[in-house]
Simulated assay, not measured.
Amino acid sequence: MQQPVVLKSNKYGINLILNDHMEFKELLQCIIDKFKESEGFFKNAKMAISFEGRKLTQEEEFEIVEAITENSSVQIICILDNDQLKEELVRQKIEQFEEEQAGRTGEFYKGTLRSGQVLDCETSVVVIGDVNPGAKVISKGNIVILGALKGNAYAGANGNMQAFVAALDMDPVQIKIGDVIGRSADKTAKDRKKKKQPVEPIEPQVAIVKDGNIYIEPITKGLLNSI
Rank of each mutant, 00 (worst) to 15 (best):
N44D: 15
K46I: 09
E63F: 05
E61H: 03
E87I: 11
N82Y: 09
R54E: 07
N71V: 06
K36M: 13
F35Q: 05
I68S: 02
E63C: 11
E66R: 13
E61K: 15
K55G: 01
F35L: 09
V65D: 00
M47H: 01
N82A: 12
L80Y: 14
E70Y: 10
S72Y: 05
S72M: 08
V74K: 02
M47D: 00
V65L: 09
G40L: 10
I68N: 01
I49S: 02
Q75W: 09
K55V: 13
T57L: 04
E66L: 10
K43G: 02
T69S: 11
M47R: 00
E39N: 07
I77V: 15
Q84C: 11
I64Q: 04
K55A: 09
S73F: 05
E37N: 04
F51A: 02
L89Y: 07
I49F: 04
I49P: 01
E87D: 09
I68C: 03
E88K: 10
N71W: 04
V74T: 05
I76A: 01
K43M: 11
E37G: 01
F42T: 05
V65W: 01
D81Q: 12
A67F: 08
K36R: 14
I68Y: 02
E59I: 07
F41D: 01
I79P: 00
F35C: 07
F62A: 11
Q58H: 06
D33Q: 14
V74Q: 02
F42S: 02
Q84N: 08
V74M: 03
E60P: 05
K46S: 13
Q58L: 09
E66K: 15
A67W: 10
E59D: 14
C78I: 05
K34I: 08
T57C: 05
E39L: 08
S72T: 11
I79A: 00
L89T: 11
F42C: 05
G40M: 07
I64E: 02
E60Q: 15
A67Q: 11
E37I: 08
D83F: 08
I76L: 04
R91K: 15
K55W: 02
A48M: 10
A48R: 10
I68M: 03
K43T: 10
E37Q: 10
E61R: 14
K34D: 13
I68T: 03
I76W: 01
E59Q: 12
Q75F: 09
K86A: 14
V65H: 01
Q84A: 15
N82I: 13
E63Q: 15
K86G: 04
F35K: 06
R54K: 13
N44E: 13
L85C: 09
Q84W: 07
S72V: 07
D81N: 15
K86Y: 10
N71F: 02
E70M: 13
D33W: 06
E70R: 15
S38W: 03
E88N: 08
E52M: 08
G53Y: 04
G40E: 13
